[in-house]
């Protein structure tokens, strides 16, 4: 059995002559909760669709649970739960009918757990899917994905379009579910606080490239924001590798830098700043710095 739940090798996807995904390499070990981040339109959904065999790559290979994505068997599909962006359910069906369909097409179905979810969400069984609010659709989609007790759960921006209460309710439940052992989760979102709460590994897509792939702690350790105040104007010749962003205002220079080490600190010291402060960064700060500027690679 392969140790990776998700494996992507040299994945390239062109669409209408535009490069959507550019040489993506990624391995997500079993039991990992992976947060895939990126701005709208950077290729998160395309990546997930290729993984699930819903779309084909231009080049490269993707594997889910050790099986090639383009040849996923019904048995493998039965071990994967998927909550699609926009909750793509059969709109003309009633809730009850859709549940029965999913139940009969599932290899494994935890009725007790599903009943518990239905009770929590109070979903109307006789209403058509198209008549449900987006919050209810998200809840139904998550319930259906969870009822099969999936080995791998793929959540593609599941809280998109939900109000604050529904989002919180959804996340609380998701966190409960995520506590279970040995379940791999790929969680794509651009709501960073959501990802920060549950992910133990982070990937950031910028312009089709995976520029960050490491643990959350490592990401926070490796990216540093420095505020340097100089007695006079900040030096123009402060050249360091891995600078993500650099802003000057008066005597102040704010640098966001990756892999800050002794050598880099020593170089900064040679410019004799009168003040040297490290500014703590949240995931959101890191994300904004990474996505607003030139692509930088922090891949393990």
């Amino acid at each position: 059995m392969s140790n990776e739940a998700i494996k992507i090798k040299e994945l390239v996807k062109y669409y209408d002559g535009r490069c959507i995904l550019d040489d993506i390499n990624l391995e997500v070990p079993r039991g990992c909760i992976y947060g895939l981040l990126g701005r709208n339109g950077v290729g998160k959904t395309t990546l997930i669709r290729i993984l699930l065999g819903l779309d084909s790559p231009t080049r490269g290979q993707t594997h889910l649970l050790g099986c090639d994505s383009s040849q996923l068997s019904a048995e493998i599909h039965g071990r994967i739960g998927y909550v699609a962006e926009g909750h793509n359910l059969i709109q003309s069906y009633r809730v009850g009918k859709l549940i029965n369909l999913c139940k009969s097409l599932s290899a494994k179905w935890d009725q007790n757990f599903f009943d518990h979810l239905l009770e929590t969400f109070r979903l109307p069984m006789d209403r058509k899917i198209k008549q449900l609010s987006s919050g209810m659709r998200a809840q139904l989609n998550l319930s259906l994905a969870m009822a099969i007790d999936p080995e791998l759960l793929i959540l593609d921006d599941p809280t998109l379009g939900l109000d604050t209460v529904a989002r919180r309710q959804f996340l609380e439940l998701a966190i409960d579910i995520l506590q279970q052992d040995n379940r791999t989760i790929l969680f794509s979102s651009h709501i960073l606080s959501d990802v920060e709460r549950i992910a133990d590994r982070i990937g950031i897509l910028v312009a089709g490239k995976l520029v960050v792939d490491c643990t959350l702690e490592e990401l926070k350790t490796r990216i540093t924001k420095l505020r340097l105040i100089f007695p006079e104007k900040p030096p123009a010749d402060l050249h360091l590798t891995d600078i993500i962003n650099q802003q000057t205002q008066g005597r102040e220079l704010v640098i966001t830098i990756a892999n800050l080490n002794k050598q880099k600190r020593a170089i900064i010291e040679t410019f004799n700043p009168s003040s040297y402060t490290e500014i703590p960064m949240s995931l959101e700060d890191i994300f904004i710095e990474c996505t607003n500027t030139r692509p930088l690679s922090i891949v393990n």
């Binding site: 699930l52 819903l54 019904a74 599909h77 994967i80 699609a84 793509n88 003309s92 599932s106 099969i148």
Partner: peptide, 17 residues
């Protein structure tokens, strides 16, 4: 139009089926 297969194929089934 209704993206039925794109939903069905995420359940324990395949395009062939």
């Amino acid at each position: 139009d209704k993206k039925i297969s794109s939903f069905l194929v995420t359940l324990a089934t395949t395009r062939r089926q």
